[in-house]
Write a protein that binds this DNA or RNA. Structure first.
Lengths: 262, 262
DNA sequence: CCGTTAGTGCTTGCATGCAATTTCCGGCCC
DNA sequence: GGGCCGGAAATTGCATGCAAGCACTAACGG
């Protein structure tokens, strides 16, 4: 079932006869030695990126055969990848029917706020306790990479550094379960981010908040670090929800026609 | 269900020519109408239970062919199920090798404490805000079911009611992301619980703490509910870690060199 | 006696074939 | 004209076949 604005009724892969998916696949095939066990993971990564970045719109049906053709693999790894993405919550499964890209309910993104805020707050507290001089430097490095990308107006690079910054904090927390949960949540957060154009307007505030987080971590102050992270995350996600609820009626960005996303 | 110190060194499927797995499978096959899309989910459930309850010991290798025979299905759904369980963190994948049941590191269980505590605390806060009279009654019902099972010394029933009690609180919190995360974490918590014999000694304290939680929820006091849950969870998991670390030195199971498959 | 190495069987990873179910479309009836 | 029904195409779910890679054995050399 296709969805909102359909002058193009069908967002499925079929629409693009030789899309970036294939290109990426080719690249991967050439670049690596094409090990035996690499197909499954590769397909997961490809599809995941397509979904998270919004190339595959919410509600789009995933036809196994088409994906096979596009990615030049057989149905087995594709099926497994789809199952994986269903577990990640990026797809929804209907029995005997094509999996569909999960909706991006406003309620759902709203629900993310409390959970991610809590998780990142915990990460901040733990990280502040465990952090080493080396880790402080690494965080600082990422922070300045972000500032650089901001200054150059390079959104993708900023984006990536931002994710790395937050993930690094969770790594420093040195709690594998926390990292696991964070990675799962990050998929959903990134998806919500990509579907909104909010970021350019929040760059500056975000960078300042990051500075505060960095300071609190460097001071090894768990309470302050946790609180700074909670505030930061809550600000970001709340703004995101606001932006999304505003765009809800008219979603102009997210043109799948161009071939962005490398 | 067997447990920690069991004198059979090899918990694998191969060892038991017609184990409970098969029986369960038969039961399921008979009971349901055996719909088309039911195999995958069924296999996941079977294997998951075997792992969570400890029938499949940590480190055990899962041979696809054997599982196929035991569960009387082909390799396709088994492979998909294994992939799913890897994502859940119950199995570990090695390229071109059998998946193995994830270890139950003490560090890992310890890491669970902070995360689960935080998550359940959040659930308590949200639940206290949202709770209705009906929900209060439902929670109370579960609480008294637990007391009944405790009085009758029925551990499995108690166990189940305990899980239901906690999950119900998360449901009341009415946050789908939170519920999703909780379900994932619950798998690991249950696995740790099953691997320890701690519970009979903690029944009474747990029930009292549950009463406190129930009271706080009924009073619609988020802070108190959250704190009560945090304390409760921390108590339980800390005791669990202590129990496990005590058992650690004398674990006949968990031998990496044990028989394959199975 | 021990470490190394070639050979062999088993296991996974992927591709493909088959059956059941759903969907889609045209015709039919009201 | 609209809704209902039937059949064909398409799609998923499951089973199976085949090749690459790993583990294990055993012989060999030091």
């Amino acid at each position: 079932m296709s969805f909102p604005d359909d002058d193009r009724p069908d967002m499925t892969l079929s629409q693009t006869p030789t899309p970036l998916a294939t290109l990426i696949a080719r690249a991967q095939a050439l670049d690596g030695g094409r090990k035996k066990g690499a197909l499954h993971g590769g397909v997961v990564t490809q599809l995941r990126n397509l979904i998270v970045t919004g190339v595959l719109a919410p509600g789009a049906k995933l036809n196994e055969r088409e994906i096979c053709e596009q990615l030049a693999v057989s149905r087995t790894p594709v099926r497994e990848a789809i199952k994986t993405l269903i577990q990640d919550g990026l797809l929804r499964a209907l029995p005997n029917q094509s999996a569909v890209v999960a909706e991006l309910d406003l309620d759902h993104v709203t629900a993310l706020i409390d959970v991610v805020t809590t998780i990142e707050g915990l990460a901040g507290e733990l990280a502040a306790r465990n952090i080493t001089e080396e880790a402080i430097a690494e965080i600082g490095l990422l922070h300045y990479r972000m500032r650089l990308h901001q200054a150059r107006d390079e959104l993708p690079g900023y984006f990536e550094a931002n994710t790395a910054f937050h993930r690094k904090i969770v790594e420093i927390a040195a709690n594998p379960v926390l990292l696991w949960v964070w990675d799962l949540l990050a998929l959903r957060v990134d998806r919500a981010r990509y579907s909104s154009n909010l970021w350019p307007t929040r760059w500056k505030a975000a960078i300042q908040e990051h500075q505060g987080i960095l300071d609190a971590l460097a001071a090894r102050d768990p309470d302050r670090a946790g609180e700074a992270l909670r505030q930061h995350v809550r600000n970001g996600l709340s703004g995101l929800v606001a932006a999304l609820s505003g765009e809800q009626k008219d979603p102009p960005q997210n043109r799948p026609d161009d071939k962005p996303v490398g």
